[in-house]
Nucleic acid binder design. Structure first.
Ligand code: ZN
Ligand code: ZN
Ligand code: ZN
Ligand code: ZN
Lengths: 153, 153
DNA sequence: CTCACTTTTGATAAGCATTATCATTGCCTG
DNA sequence: CAGGCAATGATAATGCTTATCAAAAGTGAG
């Protein structure tokens, strides 16, 4: 899976005339390993461990390139700075964020197509994509809060 | 409606010990008039017309205050900078953005509660809020594109 | 209404994140 | 394995947001 994806990425870069360089490969490999939602600073710091000489500008440039190629996906949670994740094929999902500890979980149960038809009828738009984020309390913070309210009785 | 809302805002500010000042009133009045989704720069420029002396710092501070009080709502479209709209009571809605011209339309047909129960079961989160944005082509851009593809036959 | 107290304001400086610049390095094709 | 051109890394520049602080304005008591 990872290898096939990496080859597809390289092929896409070659087709568009971009060079496959050391820094770019390191960043792509890192992103295929990393399963979370790192921001640009985290990407920079993690890459620096294996490639100490890399510059922040290169990380910015590579992330922009991967976004342009559709390899990377950017998400915003509560309007905070951007976080990134690989755009694996056939993996439609959204994010659930804990309001207390910030933990991010993914969920795939998306029924958006049930409302999109009606929205298209009402607005006359043709819908192409959508973004959805849910906010609440994760299981850990939920039980912590329950304990707290019990204390207060 | 507008007057009732304005009074409710004033009351909320008094309760929290915030002073009702000229600049703050001007910004709130402007936001009740404005029906779009201005960003901080647009708010600043529009307010400056009626209150030429106002400083950018005050606009930033007032927007933060209104967000804290739940009077204002912030939205991000495609991870771009924040845009704002008043949090009118009982007006749950989301945004539909044209990928070509950027036009923003609101829609109220939201079936999120149909999926939230299942997501809560799977993830064990307690969901409190959600944000949803749809992207596509507005009616104008849609017909423009249809014309264009006809030309190309 | 006036005064005294406290918050708010506006101008300015400071702080960060992102982008632009440019000489040097390093892919890639032949 | 060399030449050409894109990419890199260091640094400067830009732009947006927050912090600072003296002056102004809102509030509540008298
Ligand atoms: Zn949590
Ligand atoms: Zn979806
Ligand atoms: Zn449009
Ligand atoms: Zn909704």
């Amino acid at each position: 899976m990872e290898e096939t994806f990496l080859e597809a990425v390289k092929e896409k870069m070659r087709q568009k005339g971009y060079k496959i360089t050391g820094p770019r490969l390191a960043i792509i490999r890192y992103l295929t390993r990393e399963k979370g939602h790192p921001d640009i600073q985290e990407i920079f710091e993690d890459i620096r461990v294996e490639k100490p000489g890399i510059g922040m500008a290169t990380v910015y440039r590579t992330v922009s390139l991967l976004l342009e190629l559709g390899i990377l996906r950017a998400i915003t949670l509560r309007g905070h700075h951007l976080r990134y994740e690989l755009n694996w094929p056939d993996h439609h999902h959204h994010h659930l964020v804990c309001n207390r500890c910030g933990q991010v979980t993914e969920f795939g149960n998306c029924n958006f197509q049930l409302m999109s038809g009606e929205i298209e009828q009402v607005t006359r738009f043709k819908i192409e994509e959508h973004a959805l984020e849910a906010y609440g309390l994760c299981p850990q913070c939920l039980s912590a809060r329950l304990d707290y309210s019990t204390e207060n009785i």
